[in-house]
């Protein structure tokens, strides 16, 4: 299959906005890499540069060692699935999927065979004659995927393909897409701002912020070992508490956590599931609200200065609002100047 290599790519738009800033990335053969970040982080621009819809201001893009930086989109061995599906409403499903094959001048019988094959793969066998407006959102997204897959691209580009679908359908489709991607072993670059999507689908996640990579790593590593407070706050739910380390302990509004780091300002990061609570009066924090989700509960806590924290409790009904609690972090990370300076994992 194929390897995608992005070397020191930058994109500065007219007006001086830097969308992507000196970014390098290598996507291995058959790997699915998610570009994850908030709006304006440059992830879609990077994807569009790989697809050929934007030209990098500097840097190079290679597919299997071949420099494609200056190639037109129609010449690239890539295929993109757009967020808006971008299906051609004046053509039926079959014609949408067959369009690319017709451009390649394939015989009609081969086109029919390929199109029917890929429609079956995406669960749309027999839908060829339907017009696009006769399909549901999920079916339209499958057609968009089929249109890309039928060309057997070296690199599949997915630009927030499930963003316009409802939660239930999104979950189902992402499993299906992941299955197809793994079955075909197709190298894939996937843009999303949904952390669930990234965590559940990706082999590796690239967390982007302001056109730069904050962290590249496997989903579990990005979740459990976020390198910066931004990644810690962006992936999953994280309690981030700004405070001071003085004489070997982090302090903030009644909290005191012993830490073997030098004195100075610091950010303490603790996941809700790693924050245990012990009933105490008056306690370091007060229970503000308890939300029972059935399998677990989320306890909202308030420090004396009004700072809010969250703790995940397996037995939330043991607590009540207004009750005092002491906080016992089982795993924590400490950041200073946006860099990790200490990590402690008890369990």
């Amino acid at each position: 299959m194929a390897v995608l290599k992005i070397e020191n790519v930058s994109k500065i738009f007219q007006g001086g906005t830097t969308a992507v800033d000196d970014l390098s990335l290598e996507v291995s053969d058959g790997e699915l890499v998610c570009l994850l970040g908030p709006s304006g982080s440059g992830k879609s621009t990077l994807l569009r540069m790989v697809g050929g819809f934007e030209r990098p201001t500097q840097g190079k893009i290679f597919i299997d060692e071949a420099d494609i930086t200056d190639q037109w989109p129609e010449r690239r061995p890539t295929a993109m699935v757009f967020q808006s599906h971008a299906l051609w409403s004046h053509m039926n499903v079959f014609k949408n999927v067959a369009f690319g094959l017709r451009l390649r001048g394939l015989p009609a019988a081969e086109i029919r065979q390929n199109v029917e094959g890929v429609l079956e793969m995406v669960g749309l066998a027999g839908y060829g004659k339907r017009m696009i407006h006769q399909l549901s959102g999920g079916q339209q997204q499958r057609v968009a995927l089929a249109r890309s897959l039928v060309l057997e691209p070296k690199i599949l580009l997915l630009d927030e393909p499930f963003a316009s679908l409802d939660q239930h359908l999104r979950e189902r489709l992402r499993e299906e897409v992941r299955d197809i991607q793994q079955r075909l072993k197709i190298t894939t670059l996937f843009v999303t701002h949904g952390q669930d999507e990234a965590l559940s689908m990706a082999d590796r996640i690239v967390v982007m912020r302001d056109g730069r990579t904050e962290q590249i790593g496997r989903p579990d590593a990005v979740y459990r070992k976020p390198l910066t407070p931004f990644v810690a706050g962006f992936i999953g739910t994280m309690n981030l508490v700004e405070g001071q380390v003085m004489r070997g302990a982090f302090t903030r509004a009644g909290i005191r956590v012993p830490l073997p780091v030098a004195d100075g300002p610091a950010t303490l990061a603790v996941r809700p599931e790693a924050l245990d609570l012990i009933a105490a009066e008056p306690g370091q924090a007060q229970v503000h609200r308890i939300t029972d989700f059935g399998t677990h509960g989320i306890v909202d806590l308030e420090l004396s200065d009004g700072t809010r924290l969250k703790s995940m409790a397996t037995q939330p009904n043991a607590l009540r609002p207004g009750q005092g609690v002491d906080l016992v972090p089982r795993a924590l990370t400490v950041y200073r100047e946006s860099r990790e300076i200490y990590r402690d994992v008890h369990d």
Partner: peptide, 15 residues
């Protein structure tokens, strides 16, 4: 016309 439609056509090989 959604420009993405035109881009999708470029993407599958149309000049």
């Amino acid at each position: 016309i959604d420009k993405r439609m035109e881009e999708a056509a470029r993407d599958v090989g149309a000049g």
